[in-house]
Simulated assay, not measured.
Amino acid sequence: MHVSFGLWRLDGGVRQVSSSVIASEDRLEEILEARPDILGSGDLLRIGRQVVTDYGKRIDLLAMDAQGDLHVIELKKNKTPRDVVAQALEYGFWAQSLSFDAIRDLYAKHNGEADFESAFTDHFEVDVPDTINSAHHLVIVAAGMDTSTAQIVEYVRGYGVPINVLFFQYLRDDEREYLARSWLSNPDLESPTPGGSGAKKQAAWNGQDFYVAVGESRHRNWDDMRRYGFVSAGHGDKYRKAMLNLFEGARVWAAIPSIGYVGVGEVEATAVPVTAFDVEVEGTSIPILEVPLRTENISEDADDPAMTEYLVRVRWIDTRSRDRAVWEKGMYANQNVVTKLRHSHTLQQLAKAFDVDE
């Protein structure tokens, strides 16, 4: 299938703008990298260009939309149409299993070690979704495609494979240059497919409940948090920012990753550096760094505001030890330190397990 574009200039008479060949597909790739919105897939955050997969292949452009879905964009270049379709499917197989940490590492690698979560928030002006990469989109960019290959694309699309072809044509008018585009299948008119982004809706948040991942390490320990009334994270800007999301009066559900939920409490004061956090011992307020702790290095980097541990004071309503953690299949878990807990099944089960009202 070949898509032909016609463009006519009307000022000074009617004159057709001639179609031409762009100097190099590298230039088109650079244009799309700088302005991925030209693709017509909505606003996109570029993860990287020439991203190497686990199989040693290179994806021309990898991007993400505001819903956390990945977009794999592949230019046809010198590959035959059938080859580029097969390669796009291989890329999709690889992309579907990318974890949050893998995406964060890819972003850092291709953007000068920049922080993925900060870039996402700055770009879209919203927090990173609780779940990312639950769907992906494969986009082949080409000047044309034979009918047989187009039929293959339409066939696999009919079975829910999220692939589409975007046709670009380059046109010149004296010193002016133009790009025209057209989809093989109009994405605005298609029905959502099972598991696709159109089927993904987040439940409304109740404005109160937060999931807090208690990532135990040499910097923090659940026993200390439980005994002295706090949750904490630090040693990186994104962890500090995560703690700052917890406001006074919020309800936190503490969970030890890979173990389960171990506590629920109400935030009494917002995050402060470890050097500014006091605890009460036998009626006396004492800096936490002067009391016995299970953790070994909570004071590490205490003199560095960007790297120190940040503590949020919590009045525990109900807690339990690790061996009595609450967990069952289907409960909410997340790789982020702090996320809004809006999963109704999890909230219902936790309300039954802990001493709180639903």
Rank of each mutant, 00 (worst) to 15 (best):
W8I: 14
Q16D: 04
V17L: 10
E29V: 06
E29A: 14
E33Y: 14
D37W: 08
S41G: 03
L45G: 06
G48Q: 05
K57R: 15
L61G: 00
L70H: 06
K76W: 03
N78I: 02
K79L: 15
V85N: 03
V85Q: 08
A88V: 05
L89N: 09
Y91I: 04
S99V: 04
D105K: 15
L106A: 12
F116C: 11
F120W: 05
F124K: 03
V126C: 11
V128Y: 05
N133G: 09
A142V: 07
N164I: 09
L166H: 02
F168E: 00
E175M: 12
L184M: 14
S185G: 03
D188F: 12
P192H: 10
V214W: 01
E216L: 09
W222I: 00
G234I: 06
K241A: 07
M243W: 01
N245R: 15
R251N: 02
A254F: 03
A276I: 00
E280T: 14
D301Q: 04
T308G: 08
Y310N: 09
V312M: 01
R313A: 03
R313G: 00
E328D: 10
E328A: 11
E328M: 08
K329D: 14
K329T: 11
M331A: 09
N336I: 00
H343G: 11
Q349L: 14
L350V: 12
E358G: 05
